[in-house]
Simulated scan of single mutants.
Amino acid sequence: MISCEVSIYPMETQNSDQVINQALASIKDKGVTCQVGTISTYISGPPEKVWECIRTLYDAASARSKELSMVVTISNSQE
């Protein structure tokens, strides 16, 4: 199991909340635990599923935003 904290920052868009929410919707049924916070989303699960979610989030957000920054912190700690 691994976990990560992900923050997505769409730039040059009027609808950043929509970009973020649509990106989060794209990982809804990926088989991971996902907890959305006010400034970050926490994802945990099997490594291959978590990595897939990170990629899916990036692809979904970058398709809807001219510029995008995404910050990811990954941990293999079980706590």
Rank of each mutant, 00 (worst) to 15 (best):
K66T: 07
S69M: 14
Y58I: 02
I54Y: 02
L24W: 06
A25F: 01
K28F: 09
E52M: 11
P10K: 07
V36N: 04
E12G: 13
I74W: 00
E67W: 08
G37L: 02
T56V: 10
N21H: 12
S7I: 15
P46F: 13
R64F: 04
W51E: 03
S62N: 10
M70P: 00
Y9M: 14
D59P: 07
S7D: 08
K28V: 10
E12R: 12
A63P: 01
E67G: 06
M11L: 15
T13C: 11
A23M: 08
D17K: 12
T33N: 13
Y58G: 04
C34P: 01
T13A: 02
I74F: 02
M70Q: 06
I54N: 05
Y9L: 15
S3H: 09
T73Q: 12
S62W: 04
I27W: 03
S16L: 04
Y42Q: 15
A63Y: 02
I54C: 08
S16M: 07
T41F: 06
S40F: 08
V72W: 00
V19W: 05
K28M: 03
S26G: 09
K28I: 07
Q22H: 10
Q35S: 12
M70D: 02
S3W: 02
P47R: 14
S16E: 13
S69T: 11
E48R: 14
L57K: 07
S40R: 07
Y9I: 13
A25T: 04
E67R: 14
K49M: 09
V72P: 00
I2Y: 05
I39S: 11
A61S: 12
T33K: 05
D17N: 13
V72G: 04
K28N: 11
A60P: 01
C34L: 11
K49P: 06
L68P: 00
P46L: 13
S65D: 09
S7G: 04
I43C: 03
I2D: 01
E5G: 05
T41N: 08
W51G: 01
E52L: 11
E5K: 10
C34Y: 00
C53H: 05
S65G: 09
K66A: 10
V32D: 00
D29T: 10
G37V: 03
S40C: 09
V36I: 15
A60S: 14
T38D: 12
L24P: 13
S3N: 11
S75V: 07
P47C: 13
T56A: 10
N21Q: 15
A63N: 10
A25C: 08
S44C: 14
K28W: 06
K30V: 08
Q18L: 14
V36R: 11
I43M: 01
Q18N: 11
D29V: 11
P10W: 08
T73V: 09
V71I: 15
I74V: 15
I43S: 03
G31R: 03
L68C: 05
E52P: 01
Q18A: 10
L68H: 01
D17P: 03
K66S: 12
P46H: 14
G37K: 01
